[in-house]
Design a protein around this nucleic acid. Structure first.
Lengths: 152, 152
DNA sequence: GAAATAAACCACTTTATTCCACTATTTTAT
DNA sequence: ATAAAATAGTGGAATAAAGTGGTTTATTTC
């Protein structure tokens, strides 16, 4: 259950192709079959889920009450941008044009391993996001997570 | 649960490789498999966790809700600097270039055994850290921290 | 059936990993 | 205490893998 981690910047060619980082490939479980689902993230980035993790997300979505107005809105807007993608023989994904536009990704993309999913950022948008994150608040978060690790 | 201790200075070659101190190797538990996770520390140093200790950290992270705003920020910023590293046949780790730059490590690195993890310092940054800590204030800190620690 | 789009294929450059050799230090045996 | 053996630390070369750009072939669409 080792999760995605690390940050890797790769170039995007004029066909929207970007090498999938080798370091992240190691974390893929065999049942993911190098198949992914890519969609708009909650920040201005894209979420890339390996197939097996995506199925868990769908499981969560199915538990949402689709007879409530809010439920329908969440499901619709989360799924409407989603698309299935795979890796080519050179281990590249090709990012759908619509999603590239929306996320502001152009010639460079930054992969960030983020637990059960991978985030795809344009360098510019990531810089903006980082500005809003002070070192102090990171410190607080860090201590929150690492504080009492020895909890057997 | 034997913990890391001691301080060892080693050289770093132009490929970012540094021998893992033999004295520290003895503390590694067999299930760590000579695998580590390295990431930015809270001071200007790197944290090196043996695999078994790191898994405890990931266990905590996996409990965070990745669909809440704060949760996403915690997970992203915590994992993004992290990378898995192993030892080569000569018992060396290779420090990722990004982390070398960030931590100011160049041709020399100081390993400091620090309980469940190991800290990696550039000699310069460690000297700065030491200057800011006089022996008197260390004594005070020690008392403050150790004062009310209960020994089960 | 032609144009547009996407998938597969190939070639090259760069980067990372593995392997081998040498020196210094520590441990062991006499 | 001294020599021999083993382990530790260091540097470089050889090898393999990763990343990138472009071309060709197949598929879809109109």
């Amino acid at each position: 259950m080792s999760s995605f981690k690390g940050e890797y910047e790769h170039s995007v060619d004029n066909k929207g192709r970007a090498s999938f980082p080798a370091k992240l490939r190691k974390y893929l479980s065999p049942q993911a079959q190098e198949r992914f689902t890519i969609l708009k993230g909650l920040e201005k980035c894209l979420y890339l889920y390996p197939q097996d993790e995506w199925e868990k997300v769908e499981g969560k979505l199915s538990k949402i009450n689709s007879f409530s107005r809010q439920g329908r809105t969440v499901i619709r807007n989360f799924l409407r941008s989603a698309e299935d993608v795979g890796l080519d023989n050179q281990n590249r994904i090709s990012i759908p044009a619509k999603l590239m536009n929306w996320s502001d990704i152009d010639t460079k993309v930054i992969f960030i391993g983020s637990g059960e999913r991978i985030e795809l950022w344009s360098p510019e948008q990531l810089a903006i996001e980082d500005e809003n994150m002070s070192f102090e608040s990171y410190q607080d978060l860090f201590e929150e997570v690492m504080g009492d690790v020895e909890d057997e």
